[in-house]
Amino acid sequence: MSKTTRTFEIEDYVVRDAQEGERAPRMEGYAIVFNSDSSLIREGGRTFIERVAPGFCRGSLEGVAEGRHIHALWSHDRQKPLGSTRNDNLVLREDEKGIWFSLSTERFERRELAAARDGDLQVSFGMRKIDYDWSVRDDGVKVGLIRSAEVFEISPVVFAAYNATSAELREEMIRSHDEWEASQRVEEVVEEQVEDKIDVSRELVLIELGRARIQAR
């Protein structure tokens, strides 16, 4: 599976002051709540929502204990590392509700820390999906379920949330289908024009061949 990113709203979100032994405030909350609907996704010609199954990244979390660490970056930028599970600047924990995280803001710039305190940030996971299922809700909305994935990084991002309602999702799906149909009609028109030109060219060739035969006589 190819690498992808997924952005989630943070639940129970706080930026708490540094405690004894800590050098900076920390962002904390649930980066992923299991089996909850994501924001609208348009990818690979599909319009859908996505859910995450319990235990989807258990292998990655177990790998941390074995020395395979997960990194924190600012907005997926490798030039702006924020820490990792190696040094506890990043802590990830799974429970019945979802994936809880705690991230030190020590390497945040002033405006980034202000955005964190104002609640303007979401959390985005860099992952490689391993096991994935499709289904359709009763209202016709397509649902992708991430059953298993390899998580290799987590990023705070500034991203406008799109908490789509079912009506908005259906409208978006209809719009996507209409756009696809329109593109198909354009392709059909182009193909017809090409075929017409080919037919005209054939007729011209036949006329020229006829003239050449007449002259040869």
Rank of each mutant, 00 (worst) to 15 (best):
G55V: 13
A149P: 04
P54A: 09
F108D: 02
T105V: 09
K80P: 00
E172H: 12
S2W: 02
L90Y: 06
I99Q: 02
T105H: 02
L145W: 14
Q215A: 14
E153S: 12
Q122A: 14
D95E: 10
I154L: 15
E168A: 10
R147I: 04
I214D: 14
L73C: 01
F48V: 03
E11H: 13
L103H: 02
E172W: 05
S102D: 07
F56S: 08
S176Q: 08
K80Y: 08
S84R: 03
E188C: 03
G210E: 09
M127F: 10
L90K: 01
F101M: 13
R175S: 13
E188M: 11
D131A: 15
R68A: 10
E192D: 11
R42Q: 12
D138H: 09
V190N: 13
V33W: 01
F34I: 09
I214H: 09
Q215I: 13
Q122L: 15
T7Y: 00
G83P: 05
L121P: 00
E20G: 06
F108R: 04
A116P: 02
W74D: 06
I146E: 08
V157D: 04
H76C: 11
T85M: 07
T4M: 10
A24M: 07
A212Y: 02
L204C: 06
W100G: 00
T47E: 06
R217S: 10
I49C: 11
K3I: 06
V91C: 04
A149G: 07
P81S: 10
K3W: 01
E20K: 11
K197T: 10
L169Q: 10
L92A: 02
D138A: 15
G59Y: 00
G98A: 04
L40R: 07
D17F: 01
D95A: 06
S135H: 11
Y13H: 06
A164F: 12
R211E: 14
N35P: 04
I154A: 04
H76M: 08
V157G: 03
R107W: 13
A164Y: 06
R68P: 00
Y162H: 14
Q79V: 02
L61S: 03
V143H: 00
D37Q: 09
A161F: 07
V186I: 15
E66I: 00
L206H: 07
D138F: 04
E168P: 01
V123H: 00
D120F: 04
